[in-house]
Nucleic acid binder design. Structure first.
Length: 859
RNA sequence: GCCGGCGUGGCGGAAUGGUAUACGCGGCGGUCUCAAAAACCGCUGCCCUCACGGGCUUAAGGGUUCGAGUCCCUUCGCCGGCACCA
């Protein structure tokens, strides 16, 4: 949302996990890539001629008329058939809405308009994700306060851009995350999470962005870089608040199966949550039985192949077990490993393929006792084991793991094969990482990998020395930000009562109006400098206390905004229970795939937590989600840093909003995106002009002819199906084709004209309405029912049947509908081309698909 | 390496296992014009042929089928997600 790349964030079109895009060219950027200075934007490149009709006049007129009539305002309390059509609200940047936003919003609006014509009360709200570091940094650069800057950007977005693109927004439910009436509830949600034990105070190593001078969540670090500015993230120990999203790891993963979401987004979430099942157990340290090395493995079947144990360099046990004579070597290695970690990250930044460096490590001098064999195996320290994953230590099985193999080879450690591939001899000079049959594994010898894994897990459980468990890639969501432009963390620290949430009746904790709101860079936030803010009293005992001085991650703002829209005017609840029952969960959510593991994951988490708090009666906020595609220009993603921004205003001014809508949707499949070429705009102009001219012709009264009616219902069928499936490009293609067909006729009826206008209404709302009235119709075209397909009208007397010989098409015949095989056979053989292809050979077989084709096979 | 998706004219892209290249852009030719633009009409995958006609073509190779862009296998390439994940 705020952070969105394609749809809402100009500087990084998509690919949130890819560092390729240089950071926004802000002066304070310390980024690793040259901030390619580009001309701000390319001039409007008007290759096509503007339409001949006066779009500016009627687009303005209809906007006003619709607003005056409240055409898009739903009856929020008493809808007959509620349908919540949601799109990702934008972050109001200084650059303005860009064409990627318009692409996202128009595609979603077509869906909403279509559902509305099908009789639903469609709620299509819009709002602004206006808190965040981006606004704050821009404000710093301009020397202006973020509040005034944000207010101006919001006004520009709403009045000069969003209101002109032709969407059926219900502005009476606008939300703005910087409004105290909104962030009051963001803070309230935090206090609920605190009471549930889902918001916890931690001190530990965190991701620190030196450029933005704040900590970041795991999801906001892309290959070691700040998701926002691209600076290399450092590791620092800082106290912070974390939301325990990991508590919901299983639900977040398992619920995905039942959600109707774009597959690529579900796949990304599965990868990110990254669950793996295994067993965790402890290996006692020889001679120090009070100590144990906890390890996690997904392959218990390889346990008899353990020949050594490895600890991560930062592992706390290292100091305890290292023998005195090994201490020097270990200390040196730890220093070296830390340096290598940084160097490796920098190599990745330069997109240099890391040379396959030989593994490194040092022996601790200590030994661990194998829990099943009692054998002693050496304990090493090596940096191929990561402190961040699992227990920070591993049981090494060089025979059956690539990395352990490489390490054993380099260090001269023994290798013991205990799993054999079925039906073949394993190569003795390479690890075998697949499953197979166990050998030299005591009582498990002869069992298959699966069976043995299960039995070994049971052994651990029964002996009380280990337990089955799942490990996840997902980490808790760190939400403290040492910045200014966000909702303050609603916590008060009392010497006696510790961290106390601010009581509900004292919310919001208002963000004070600061003159100097720049981040300090010391790990403290700007709010810490304001004594009147910091000093307060404990809500429990009334004694002097201090406030938390951080603000919350602005992804928390957007993690619940969809709950607020229907209740935006309710001051007593974050979401009105009655309205929430009526409108939620969201029926259709359309947005960018770059939010797969950011906004979309956070929103699911908050919804689950509020469900567990008894505050919502559903677990999943979005039953249907569709990821739209990306717009490219000359083969490159549209991105501010590439200097190829396309400004939608220019196109709306020159060609009208309908033309831009049509063109954008015609570029390619909506879920795939496409190539923006403003030469292509001419096609949209010509199409709309053609329909305009059709509207100026004399319309015949009465019903269309049978053939005309069939053609009409064919286009209804095609446009209906394609609109339903978000295949807007092919729906438009068929309307273009049909309008050309009408144009060639000497005469067509009112029914045909008005039906075409109804089909076009979701796509080109202004011109459809204008022509609707010009041909003398009443009411709004947008209040008309969507045309129904008349199946009977689709049936024809004759049909084109293809004649093939041995699978090759040799001709086309016109046959009566439902012709028999004998008729088709005879007709096919009468064709000159068929006779030639048969070369006098009689067909030995015929495949007949009625009304489709006949294939004569000579054998 | 694992996971998700994709590969079709000069370009964006169409095709429930059944006439591949719809629709649009661009290009070429024509009409109109003193001329140009716009508009309108026609042609436009590749090869052979004056023509009639024929052959080939959906990244490459194989398979299933009467028939494959579509289904299956192998390989290559592109986009996206994850990644010393134990």
């Amino acid at each position: 949302m705020a952070r969105s790349e394609t749809p809402t964030r100009p500087e990084r079109p998509h690919a949130r996990r890819k560092r390729e895009d240089p950071p926004t060219p802000q002066p304070i950027t310390t980024s690793r890539k040259r901030a390619t200075r580009q001309p701000a934007a390319q001039p409007p490149r008007a290759h096509a001629r503007p339409p001949f009709y006066d779009f500016a006049a009627f687009e303005q007129r209809w906007s006003e008329e619709w607003e005056a009539r409240g055409l898009y305002r739903v009856d929020i309390d008493h809808p007959r058939k509620p349908y919540y059509n949601l799109m990702m609200f934008p972050y109001p940047s200084a650059e303005g809405l860009h064409v990627g936003n318009v692409y996202a919003f128009v595609g979603s609006d077509i869906h909403g308009r279509w559902m509305s014509m099908r009789g639903y009360d469609v709620f299509e709200p819009m709002g602004f994700d206006a808190f965040g570091i981006h606004s704050e940094n821009f404000a710093i650069q301009r020397g202006e306060h973020p509040a005034s800057l944000t207010a101006r950007n919001v006004a520009r977005f709403r009045e000069t851009q969003l209101k002109r693109i032709g969407n059926r927004f219900d502005w009476s439910h606008e939300v703005n995350t910087t409004d105290p009436g909104y962030y009051r509830w963001t803070q309230w949600i935090f206090t609920q999470l605190f009471r549930m034990g889902l918001a916890v105070r931690k001190t530990g190593v965190v991701n620190w962005c030196p450029n933005d001078r704040t900590v970041l969540a795991d999801e906001q670090v892309i290959n070691g870089h700040c998701e926002r500015c691209g600076a290399l993230v450092e590791r620092r120990a800082l106290p912070h608040w974390a939301l325990r999203i990991t508590h919901y790891a299983d639900s977040l993963l398992d619920n995905l199966d039942a959600l109707d979401w774009s597959e690529r987004v579900k796949a990304a979430q599965r990868n990110w949550i990254g669950r793996s099942y295994g067993v965790e157990f402890s290996l006692p340290v020889a001679g120090r039985v009070e100590l144990g090395v906890a390890v996690f493995t997904t392959r218990p079947d390889t346990i008899f192949g353990v020949t050594f144990v490895v600890l991560a360099p930062e592992h706390p046990l290292v100091d305890e077990i290292t023998t005195p004579e090994r201490r020097g070597a270990i200390a040196a290695y730890r220093t070296e490993a830390a340096a290598r970690r940084v160097a490796r990250q920098q190599a990745r930044d330069r997109d240099v393929d890391e040379p396959a460096t030989p593994p490194t490590g040092v022996f601790t001098g200590a030994y661990a006792i194998h829990p099943m064999t009692g054998e002693q195996v050496p304990i090493w320290v090596a940096d191929y084991v990561l402190m961040e994953y699992g227990t920070g230590a591993i049981m090494a099985v060089p025979a059956h793991d690539e990395r352990d193999w490489a390490f054993a080879r380099a260090m001269g450690l023994p290798v013991r094969f205990v799993v054999q591939p079925v039906g073949e001899i394993s190569a003795p000079d390479a690890p075998y990482t697949g499953e197979g049959v166990l050998v030299t594994s005591e009582q498990y010898t002869g069992q298959g990998s699966r069976e043995a894994s299960e039995a070994i897990c049971v052994w651990f459980e029964e002996s009380g020395t280990g337990r089955r468990m799942a490990r996840y890639h997902l980490r808790d969501w760190l939400i403290s930000r040492q910045r200014y432009w966000g909702p303050p963390v609603p916590i008060i620290y009392c010497p006696e009562h510790g961290a106390v949430p601010v009581p509900e009746d004292q919310l919001p904790v208002r963000l004070p109006d600061l003159e100097d709101y720049r981040p300090s860079g010391t790990g403290g936030s700007p709010l810490a400098r304001i004594e009147s803010f910091v000093n307060t009293t404990c809500p429990v005992c009334g004694q002097p206390a201090t406030r938390d001085t951080d603000v919350m991650d602005n992804f928390l703002d957007s993690a619940w905004y969809f709950l607020r829209y229907p209740s935006s005017d309710d001051d007593a609840h974050p979401w009105n229970p009655e309205r929430t029952r009526t409108w939620l969960p969201v029926n259709m959510y359309i947005g960018g795939a770059e939010h797969s593991v950011l906004h979309l994951l956070y929103a699911r988490f908050i919804t689950m937590a509020m469900h567990d708090a008894g505050l919502l009666d559903f677990e999943e906020p979005f039953t249907h989600f569709r990821a739209h595609g990306i717009i490219a220009l000359a083969g490159k993603k549209i991105s501010k840093s590439k200097g190829n921004i396309v400004n939608p205003d220019d196109y709306i001014n020159t060609y009208g909003a309908d033309t831009l809508r049509l063109y954008l949707m015609f570029m390619g499949p909506y879920e795939q995106g496409g190539e923006f070429s403003d030469k292509g705009v001419a096609g949209a102009v010509r199409f709309l002009e053609r329909v305009w001219r059709l509207g100026e012709r004399d319309l015949a009264a009465g019903a269309p002819s049978r053939d005309a009616k069939r053609a009409l219902h064919q286009v209804i069928r095609k446009v209906s199906d394609d609109t339903a499936g978000l295949r807007y490009n092919t729906a438009i293609a068929d309307m273009m084709r049909y309008s050309g067909e009408l144009e060639e006729r000497a005469m067509f009826t009112r029914e045909e004209m008005t039906t075409l206008l109804r089909l076009m209404a979701p796509y080109a709302p202004f011109i459809s309405e204008e022509i609707w009235h010009r041909v003398g119709e009443h009411g709004s075209v947008h209040e008309q029912p969507w045309p129904e397909v008349d199946e009977a009208a689709l049936r024809a007397d004759t049909v084109a049947v293809v004649a093939q010989v041995n699978g090759k098409t040799r001709g086309v015949m016109t046959l009566p509908t439902g012709a028999t095989e004998a008729q088709a056979f005879e007709a096919a053989q009468a064709l000159e081309a068929v006779r030639r292809a048969l070369r006098g050979q009689p067909p030995i077989r015929a495949i007949y698909i009625p009304d489709r084709l006949i294939n004569l096979v000579t054998g």
